[in-house]
Structure formats: structure tokens, C-alpha cells
């Protein structure tokens, strides 16, 4: 069973490294969107530090949205998705492997570039760590929620817009709690409670979303 998980992760990573533009484009998009803000609204450090959490989180959301197409779409087109649904393992479990790989390829790189963006937006160290932790907990939730949306819209020819309409409202709670935590940190207040709420959302998403994804795939592919 664990071998099946490893095989899926391995295959997806291998495929992604053969098509590197797929991994790099969302990251570039993320970095560019964030750098546009200082250009657009001026370079006053106090102003930038004030709006930085919102900017980074909205950019991360949009970058995630950009990358969801890859999650099941290619597999749907070349038939690997059908074959995955016919594998002698629980589809829910295999779907976990897919989402985990998606997070490795999109969520993790965002964490890696976040120190750079903290410098761009003149964040203090304490605020940066809050940002880092919210991204660490929040991006897997985005991957899980997005996967439900992708699974629901996969059979549609122009599912992209519908996907954003499903996905963005669902991610509002994550956005609210993350930016609240970062704001609290920037005022020097404790933010552990807000992180714990995000953590609870992550636990809920990890336990429930894979079942929803598997069920949506069964409906969409039939």
C-alpha cells in the first residue's frame, strides 16, 4: 500500500522534472505578482509591511489556482487517470499521493521563495516567521481543496473559470486566519491560537478531502 503511494509520487515527480516549465511557471507568477505591488503603490516601507501578508497570500492563492490544471488534467487526457481508478488500491489513498506531490511541486517552492519576498516587502523577522508558518500550514489545505474542485470540473471543456469560482470562496477562511495571524505577529501579539485554528482546518482537510476527491473523480470520469 505504501509502495503504491511511493510509485505515484515518484512517477509524478519524474514527469514534472521532464517538463520543468510546469513547475516553474506558477512560482514565477507568484514572485512577479508580489513584486508588482511595490512598483504600483510606491516603496514606502511602512505601507508595504502593512499590506504584505494580504499580497503574499492572495498571490499564493492565484499561483495555486494556476497550477491546479496540472493536477488531474494531463492524466485525464492520456488515460492514466482511468487506469489509476482501476488500480487494485483504494482510490482515496492514491489521490492522497497525487495531492501530496502537487504540494511538493507548488506549495513547497512558495515556502522557499518566501524569505526573498519578505525582503522585498520589508517584513520584520517576527512577521516573516508568522508568514512562513501560515504558508506551511495553509498551502496543503489549498492543494486539498483545489483537488476537489479539479476533480469536479475535470470532464468539462472549459473548467478553468468554474474551478476558480468553486475554489476561491472555499479558501476565504484560510486567507482570513492566515492574514490575522501575520497581522498579530506584526503587532507583537501572540498568534499561536490562530495557527492552531489553521492547523485544525488542515487536519479536517486531510481527513475528509481525499474521500471527496475520490468520489468527485468517480462522478466526473463516468
Amino acid at each position: 500500500m505504501f509502495d503504491a503511494f511511493v510509485q505515484i509520487v515518484r512517477k509524478d515527480l519524474l514527469g514534472a522534472f521532464r517538463q520543468q516549465s510546469d513547475i516553474l511557471n506558477p512560482i514565477w507568477f507568484f514572485v512577479i505578482v508580489v513584486t508588482l505591488f511595490p512598483l504600483g503603490i510606491g516603496t514606502d516601507p511602512a505601507l508595504l509591511a502593512r499590506i504584505a501578508p494580504g499580497i503574499i497570500w492572495v498571490a499564493a492563492l492565484l499561483a495555486a489556482l494556476l497550477s491546479f490544471e496540472r493536477l488531474f488534467k494531463d492524466d485525464y487526457i492520456d488515460g492514466s487517470l482511468e487506469q489509476m481508478m482501476l488500480a487494485p488500491h483504494s482510490l482515496t489513498w492514491l489521490v492522497c499521493a497525487k495531492v501530496f506531490t502537487h504540494w511538493l511541486l507548488t506549495g513547497l517552492p512558495i515556502l522557499f521563495v518566501s524569505p526573498l519576498l519578505a525582503v522585498f516587502l520589508s517584513l520584520e523577522e517576527n512577521t516573516f516567521w508568522a508568514l512562513f508558518l501560515t504558508l506551511l500550514i495553509g498551502t496543503p489545505i489549498l492543494s486539498l481543496l483545489g483537488a476537489i474542485g479539479v476533480a469536479l470540473t475535470i470532464g468539462l471543456r472549459k473548467g478553468g473559470v468554474l474551478l476558480s469560482l468553486i475554489m476561491l470562496p472555499l479558501s476565504i477562511p484560510i486567507l482570513i486566519f492566515s492574514t490575522m495571524a501575520i497581522d498579530a505577529a506584526s503587532f507583537g501579539q501572540p498568534y499561536l491560537g490562530l495557527l492552531a485554528l489553521l492547523g485544525a482546518m488542515l487536519v479536517g482537510a486531510i481527513t475528509l478531502a481525499p474521500f471527496a476527491i475520490a468520489a468527485s473523480l468517480r462522478v466526473s470520469v463516468s
Binding site: 509502495d3 503504491a4 510509485q7 505515484i8 515518484r10 512517477k11 519524474l14 514527469g15 521532464r18 517538463q19 487526457i77 492520456d78 488515460g79 492514466s80 482511468e82 487506469q83 488500480a87 487494485p88 488500491h89
Partner: peptide, 23 residues
């Protein structure tokens, strides 16, 4: 089926390894 389920960016050997290990 009609759609082969073969990943175009992987080699024949890698595809077969995957099918073997998973199925």
C-alpha cells in the same frame, strides 16, 4: 482502453516499471 494510460513524458521502461509496481 482507447486512451493508453501511458505517460508521454516518461520512457517506455519507466512506464512499464510503474505499471508493474502498482498493478
Amino acid at each position: 482502453g482507447h486512451k493508453s494510460g501511458v505517460k508521454p513524458e516518461l520512457t517506455a521502461l519507466e512506464n512499464l516499471q510503474f505499471f508493474h509496481r502498482l498493478y
